[in-house]
Amino acid sequence: MTPNLTYVIVIGVLVAAGVTLLLERSLTRVLMGVILLGNGANLLLLTGGQAGGPPIVGTTPQEEMSDPLPQAMILTAIVITLGMTAFLLALAYRSWHLNGHDEVQDDVEDRRIMDLAERDEGPGDADAGSGDDDDDDDPTGGNRPVATTADAGRTG
């Protein structure tokens, strides 16, 4: 089997365009990227089987038939992509409904930690970490005097 150069080129372009769209913020574009990528992958599956006549017994002689197995796989993949498309569209709509746009937002919690990193701070409430010893906790919590253990830490 030799590669079909047309397929190879189309695959490359579909994937390139798909990836470019995938890296966007707008969910609609991302979805379009997914569709293009899916098409590229399907075409790639197709290159795994030889071309020929429709694989229908009686219509095409067996040796001239195109390979049916990749076709079955592609069919499955196409339909799965359809389901995904529907789901992503619903997601895009819901996102728009909630936020007024369909752009993918950055994670808030990650942003918080990146800010900490920029300010050169630790995770903050680390009980074992640095920081002063002032007992910010409920002072009524203790019921037995534990003398000067804080002192102990310093004199080591």
Partner: peptide, 18 residues
């Protein structure tokens, strides 16, 4: 990134089919 990934995928398709 898109072009690079596209090129790699195309290259892989070429190699595998051959």
């Amino acid at each position: 990134i898109g072009v690079a990934v596209g090129a790699v995928t195309a290259g892989m398709a070429y190699v595998a089919a051959g």
